[in-house]
Amino acid sequence: MKTFILGGGCFWCLDAVYQKTRGVSSVVSGYTGGHFPDPDYYSVCSGMTGHAEVVAVTFDEEVIPQETVLDMFFALHDPTTPNRQGYDVGTQYRSSMFYLTDEEKELFERAIERNQSLWNTPIVTEVSRAGTFYPAEDFHQDYYAKNPDAGYCSVIINPKLAKARKYYSQWLIS
């Protein structure tokens, strides 16, 4: 099993897609990349902690290739816009990848290079060494599964799920 820590805007979006991905055994929404100990949602949203909203995606490489997990990441958010994803604005929504090893850092950098051709402007995804990962509050875990009819899910997450189904249908569980 392998775990990637990825930030692509609101963690609810990445969580929703990766929860439905074959070979993914766990998705934990959380915070990392900042300087403030034991952050919570409100402190992270203040923009003062330096943390990003992220997901820790644990998957089986024998079921889904790590490159596919990363390519999905770049398809599910706009990695060319710093500190913003749609209506979500602030450093906590930055496109980010947090590596645990030098090998993982190289893998992330290759994924950026591979996916750059899909975008008209440069990818600005931050690649940083992982620090402490703080799981988000229970309310944020499995948000889409618990609240599929919520407005945010209908307007923001459902289109991302549709895009994932279009390009990665062989990897998604309906």
Rank of each mutant, 00 (worst) to 15 (best):
M1E: 05
M1Y: 11
M1I: 14
K2W: 08
K2H: 12
F4A: 10
G7H: 00
G8M: 08
W12T: 02
W12L: 07
L14P: 07
L14Q: 10
K20Q: 14
K20M: 12
R22V: 09
S25C: 10
P37T: 04
P37I: 02
D38Y: 11
Y41G: 06
V44Q: 11
C45N: 02
T49G: 01
T49K: 00
A52R: 00
E53G: 03
V55N: 14
A56V: 05
V57D: 08
F59R: 07
F59E: 05
F59S: 08
D60H: 07
E61M: 02
E62M: 10
V63W: 07
V63G: 01
I64T: 12
P65H: 07
E67C: 03
T68E: 10
L70N: 07
L70E: 07
D71G: 04
H77Y: 04
H77G: 02
P79V: 12
T80Y: 09
N83E: 10
R84K: 11
G86F: 07
D88Y: 00
V89D: 12
S96D: 04
S96Y: 03
F98T: 01
Y99G: 03
Y99H: 10
L100C: 08
T101C: 03
D102A: 13
E106R: 14
E106F: 13
R110Q: 13
I112Y: 10
E113K: 10
L118Y: 14
W119L: 03
I123T: 12
V124P: 00
T125S: 07
V127S: 01
S128A: 08
T132G: 01
T132D: 08
Y134S: 02
Q141G: 06
D142K: 14
Y143W: 13
Y143H: 08
A145Y: 12
N147E: 13
P148M: 13
D149P: 09
A150K: 15
A150R: 14
S154Y: 11
S154L: 15
S154I: 15
I157H: 11
N158R: 15
K163P: 03
K163A: 12
Y167Q: 13
W171D: 09
W171Y: 14
I173H: 02
S174A: 14
